[in-house]
């Protein structure tokens, strides 16, 4: 019934054969082609739309449209490949080769080449061409476009718009285009969570377009007076003012 030392055969076989382990990392490992090792980005086609960073489960990817950078925390990335699935321009890929181990977490930053400057314009519609087919709204990765077929309205939320141009490329009537801004007229916008209501911006404003009240904690912009110079943003000690394209 019970056998005495039945494993001896296997052990002796192992002893007189080559070991199965290798001297990794001195002998590099060969990975199959499907191995999900690390995420690679093609910055030439990347639009910095930020969909990857929004869908990343561990939030390892950061996209900054102001500095034109796409960055990834290699050690936070779990190599799930969801960003690759989500990328509208297919500029992300997940390839073999694991990130090198390191003593500290660091951010890998990729810059968008200067030559391919981003189009910072707005999506505009030519309503005479539009047939309200809603294809643009369906293609929009960030649900910025709302189209109502019955009421014949086409609306875009410019704050939500990522300027990925997916709608422009997919419009069957070529009714959409991204119009480049001339000089770029921008209004200041303050992040009131950070604002300390120091009134410095109001003092620096050459057009006196800003009214800031410390007592009632209000920050108000007179859009008609604003010349969009950006002096307020430049002088804000908290850096809470950003220049955004005018909403209309």
């Amino acid at each position: 019934m019970a056998k005495f030392l039945p494993f001896t055969g296997t052990v002796l076989h192992n002893l007189f054969h080559k070991p199965v382990t290798t001297s990794y990392p001195f002998v590099p490992k060969e990975y199959p082609e499907r191995t999900r090792g690390h995420v690679e980005v093609d910055m030439e086609t990347c639009l910095l739309c930020g969909l990857c960073s929004k869908s990343c489960p561990p939030r390892a990817i950061h996209v900054d449209r102001d500095t034109h950078t796409w960055s990834i925390h290699r050690f936070d990335c779990v190599q799930c490949g969801y960003c690759v699935q989500k990328c509208p321009k297919h500029c992300l890929s997940i390839v073999p080769g694991y990130p090198e181990p390191g003593a500290e977490k660091k951010l890998d930053i990729y810059h968008k080449p200067e030559a391919i400057e981003m189009k910072m314009g707005q999506v505009t519609v030519d309503l005479s061409k539009c047939v309200y087919c809603t294809l643009c709204a369906k293609k929009c990765p960030n649900e910025a476009i709302t189209v109502d077929r019955a009421a014949k309205t086409w609306e875009i939320d410019h704050h939500k718009c990522l300027r990925c141009s997916l709608c422009v490329n997919n419009c069957p009537r070529h009714a959409l285009e991204i119009r480049e801004e001339e000089g770029g007229f921008k209004h200041p916008q303050a992040d009131l969570n950070q604002c300390v209501f120091c009134t410095l911006c109001a003092k620096k404003c050459p057009a006196s377009a800003l009214t800031v009240d410390r007592a009632t904690k209000t920050w108000k912009l007179n859009e008609k007076e604003c010349v969009g110079c950006g002096a307020c943003a430049e002088h804000c000690p908290k850096g809470c003012i950003t220049m955004r394209p005018a909403s209309t």
Partner: peptide, 18 residues
């Protein structure tokens, strides 16, 4: 290990397959 190798070849991951 042999099964993990097959997993890696077919899914791209050894323990987390996604």
């Amino acid at each position: 290990e042999k099964i993990l190798d097959m997993f890696e070849a077919s899914t791209g991951g050894r323990v987390i397959f996604s």
